[in-house]
Nucleic acid binder design. Sequence first.
DNA 1: CAGGATCCTAAACGATACTG
DNA 2: CAGTATCGTTTAGGATCCTG
Lengths: 136, 136
Amino acid sequence: MKNQHPPVLQAASLAERFERGDLFAAQCPSREVLKHVTSRWGVLVLVALLAGTHRFSDLRRKVNGISEKMLAQTLQWLESDGFVQRIAFPVMPPHVEYTLTPLGLDIAGKVEALTDWIEVNILQISAAQQSSLSQA
Amino acid sequence: MKNQHPPVLQAASLAERFERGDLFAAQCPSREVLKHVTSRWGVLVLVALLAGTHRFSDLRRKVNGISEKMLAQTLQWLESDGFVQRIAFPVMPPHVEYTLTPLGLDIAGKVEALTDWIEVNILQISAAQQSSLSQA
DNA sequence: CAGGATCCTAAACGATACTG
DNA sequence: CAGTATCGTTTAGGATCCTG
């Protein structure tokens, strides 16, 4: 069954939402956004777009391994969440540009903070993996 | 355009990113770690453990909707990545505690920064979704 | 209580073909 | 070029049973 966003968010639950722990509720609307943003390709597309406007094929080349289908779907998710703006030029052949919105720029920064941390600490993580084998 | 990069991002220059291998490469080892951390339950378990040590059943109760299987698997991922330390007391019935390692504490903070941002901006995101429908 | 083993469904994903 | 549509495969994830 499909869990769709409620058209109007209750002001009553707004206060609750500002408290920590609301995310743990299964019906939290943030989980849907989180799903898009932390998806396998969502992360990479957001970070890629931090470098600036990209065309569809640019993104496809940059995000190594992504398929047409997944790129299109990921971009649609991010666009519907208001993180990405899609601009289609009515020319032939088609020319479409994708840009982060201010909102998207903000969240992409958070995502990049995470991915950067992983890349910086990847050796330390691998080392921890090794030592965990001897610990138990 | 309000490009407000956190300090951590500036520490990772473009040149450095090329040297340590880019996340955009399909074979980048960081992608595996990223997969665990940004997985549906990985995010929630990490944030949950920020509150301190939890037993298996505590986590299961706290992370609403997670199954035994996925909790066990997620914890094993995070443990093998060196983010979570598992302590099993040899008693009957079993007593097992899970705690964030220093490395895990660090990355959980990044993840929480992301989830917190979403929770705080969820209304703005919904608003962006609405306006994107009327713009077109 | 913690979690392994098994089975199963739903969803994600990829490849290809096709179109404006 | 930028997608959509369709199909087949793979993986995530859930339910249940079982054991130490």
